[in-house]
Structures are given as structure tokens and as C-alpha cells.
Amino acid sequence: MLNLPESQKLPGNQRFSENQKPYIELSVVMPCLNEAETLETCINKVQEYFAQYDISGEVVIADNGSTDGSPAIAKQMGVRVIDVKEKGYGSALMGGIRAAQGEYIIMGDADDSYDFTNLTPFLKKLREGYDLVMGNRFKGGIKPGAMPRLHKYLGNPVLTWIGRLLFPSPCGDFHCGLRGFRRDVIAKLNLRTTGMEFASEMVVKASLYKLRITEVPTTLSPDGRSHPPHLRSWRDGWRHLRFLLLYSPRWLFLYPGVLLMLVGFISSFLLLSSPRVHTLLYSSTAIIIGFQTMIFALFTQVFAISEGLLPENRRLNKVLRYINLEIGLIVGSILLLVGIIGSMYAFGVWEANSFGSLNPSQMMRIIIPVETCLALGFEIILSSFFLSILGLKRR
């Protein structure tokens, strides 16, 4: 919080900063799409909270194309209305966040399901220096009828568990719509999603960039609208899950790839002296697919970092010091050479038998490892070139 000299403080909740512009400590941002039934109630609660606790604050309504007169209601109540053309929950919130002038921002839905008269726990933590303060509805209390059973017992708990598994986050409720954050810090995260997965993106990026995160209990009440909620359970749940996976190349690609390669190598080694050549073929396929999956993890990580989607990774940078085009060409060429020599040996065995019939079990134990070496050799060489392209410096 800005520490202003007493001479710059005015009676009530309005203050001036050093450049003589009104200082706003807290902006409450509400996304709005046809919320005429509840919008006035929500604004009244925020304004009463500001007055009761002498908060220098503002209310920002991020309207996303309402046709029920919601913007007019907000303007009549003297709050700012931001017209956000691009559709989506995330788009509306980002429009409101960009327009907000407060040092801190608390965002919350305009359906009267959150208690805007009890924002002090959020503001207190922000004043203590936390960058993101999440509400936790499961700790604060979910009133009867406020959340569908599917969301309460399956959707939110499962997605939160997956999020905490994939990312180092302390949040016990990834999707709580009431949360506070420092405006300048969150702006640097470059949040991009436009839909409901915006809620997950904020938590994920804040965790990846090692921001100071905490949570406070908050209550959830049944919303005051007569029309159905904008949330679509299965569609939006899948979008959240997809986002979590796409932002974790390790779990999506690396770990499954390592597992496949490990199983493939062990089983291939055990089967080389066995007549079960068909199983050996599956083991070889597992090695190739596993290697390709691991390469996808590397490509995804490098691309996401270069595009600013993920933060710099020190361990990856160390790995890339040793994995470069030249090393890839050498390793790939060695595997190709092994494959070519093995192919020549197999051809020699066929020639020794006058190009006649061979024992399939015996020959496949030679051919399968040889073809695996050829495939891996080509993949390593081509992947090394592609990785070098991704690593080119950009202006």
C-alpha cells in the first residue's frame, strides 16, 4: 500500500498520490453479461464496504455485450463501465483489469453469489505483501443450492487436485471466482485465455512464476438470477483440464515418454533371446513412440518459453547446453550407422541362404533392433534441426 503523508489525505476515502491524481487503493472488477437482476445489489454491497472501512476504492464493470440494460444500471450508480467487445469470461475480466486504477484488484462475479461486504481478509493479505489471494469456498462454506453437486463433489475437487499435482500451488479451490491480486504483478503474467479457463491460468502462471500466493475462506451463496448460469459444466470442465495439461509438458509428454521408453528397453532386452518376436515388435514400437513423446516435451517447453507462455527453466537451459545440433547429428549418425551395418549383416545372412526362406523368429530378432536404430537415428537428426530452429534468436 502507498504510504501517503497526512497532508495528502482527504476526509473520507479519497486520497491523492504524489502526482496529485486521486489514489485508489482497491478496484473491484466484475465481469457482466446480462446481470440486471443482481448487478445493483453487488455494487451497493461494494460501495457500502468502501464507506464502512474508509477504503479508497472504485467499482469497474466489464460489460461483455449485455442486452438487458446492465450497463445503464451501473452508470446510474456512478461506477465505471468498460465495454469489452471480445466475448468470454477471461476477455471481460482482462478488459476490466486493464482499465482498473487501483493498486490492488479484487474480482468477483456480478450474480450476488459472493459476499462483497466481507473483502477485508483479501485486502489484509494484499497489504501484507501477497501477490495473489484466493478465496476458498470449501473452507468458508457453500450454502445449500449454491453449487451443483457435480461441481461440488467432482468437478472442482478433481480439477483442483490435478492442478496441485501438476503445479506447485497452495490453492485448495482453483476455480473460486472471488480473488484479489496486485494489479502490476498480475499484468506481467501476460494472461491470454478468453474463456472460463482464465481462472486456472491465473493460478497456474502465478505458481510457475513463484508469486506469493495465499488463500482465505469465503462463502458461496445461491446466485440471485432467474436465468441459467453462463457456465457449461462438461464443456468448461474439459477446457480447464485441457489448459492444465497443455501448460504442463512434463506430465503431458515427458513422463509418459520416459515410461514408454523404459518399458520398451527393458522388455526388448529380455525378449532378444526369446522366440516371442511379435512382443519384441511391440517393445520396439514403445521405444520409438516414447522417444517421440519426450521430444514433443522438449519442443513444447522451448516454444512456450520463447513465446512467454512459460517462465525460464534453469534445468532446461542446462540440458540445452549439451543438447545441440552438433551433438544430435553425431548421436543420430551413430544410430544410423549401427542400423546400416545391422541391415548389411541381415542381408548377408539372407545371401548365405541363397536368398531363400529364412527362420522368421531368428531373423526378426535381428531386423527389429536394426530398424529401431534406423528410426531413432533419423528422428534424432531431424529433431535436432527443428530444435535449432526453435532456438533461433528472435527480434
Rank of each mutant, 00 (worst) to 15 (best):
F291C: 06
L335H: 11
T194G: 09
A346W: 10
F181C: 04
S333F: 10
L245W: 07
I381G: 13
R212V: 01
K9Y: 02
S361Q: 13
M344R: 12
Q47K: 13
L254Y: 11
M363W: 05
M196W: 11
M294F: 04
N313H: 06
G195F: 01
M196Y: 14
L159I: 13
F116G: 01
P228V: 02
S7H: 13
L335Y: 12
N19I: 04
G257W: 00
G129T: 08
F198M: 06
S207A: 07
I142D: 10
I288V: 12
C171S: 05
P369M: 03
Y114K: 15
S113R: 01
E37A: 02
L252C: 07
G57D: 02
V203M: 05
E35D: 14
K205R: 08
V370I: 10
I73V: 02
I330G: 06
S221L: 03
E201F: 14
D236I: 04
M363G: 03
L166T: 12
S7R: 15
L298N: 12
M364T: 11
G195K: 00
I289F: 15
F296M: 15
N64E: 02
I186G: 00
E326S: 10
G172V: 07
G172F: 05
N156Y: 08
A72R: 02
G129A: 06
M134Y: 14
G177P: 07
P256A: 08
K393M: 09
G377N: 06
N13D: 11
L119S: 11
A62N: 08
F347T: 08
L246A: 15
L123W: 12
L310C: 11
D184L: 05
D68M: 03
K210I: 09
S200W: 09
F116P: 03
F167M: 05
S268A: 11
F296H: 15
E307V: 06
C373N: 14
L165I: 10
K9G: 02
I327R: 07
K125D: 08
E215G: 06
L335D: 04
G177I: 04
I288L: 13
L329A: 06
V59M: 00
W251R: 06
I366Y: 05
V277L: 06
G180K: 10
A100R: 00
L298T: 09
T293D: 06
Q52D: 12
V258K: 08
P275V: 07
L191F: 03
Q14A: 12
T41P: 09
I142Q: 12
E86C: 03
G108I: 09
I73W: 00
I367M: 10
G308F: 08
T285D: 07
P249T: 06
V204N: 05
A199H: 14
L241W: 05
G135T: 00
G332D: 04
K139E: 12
A100K: 00
H230S: 14
C32E: 13
T285L: 09
R314M: 05
K21H: 10
A304H: 11
V185N: 07
K318T: 12
F122N: 14
K85E: 13
H278N: 10
G140W: 00
K75S: 03
Q14V: 14
D173R: 11
S273N: 15
V28W: 02
I340A: 12
I55M: 00
D111G: 01
K9W: 00
T372I: 04
S283D: 14
Y130N: 13
L390E: 13
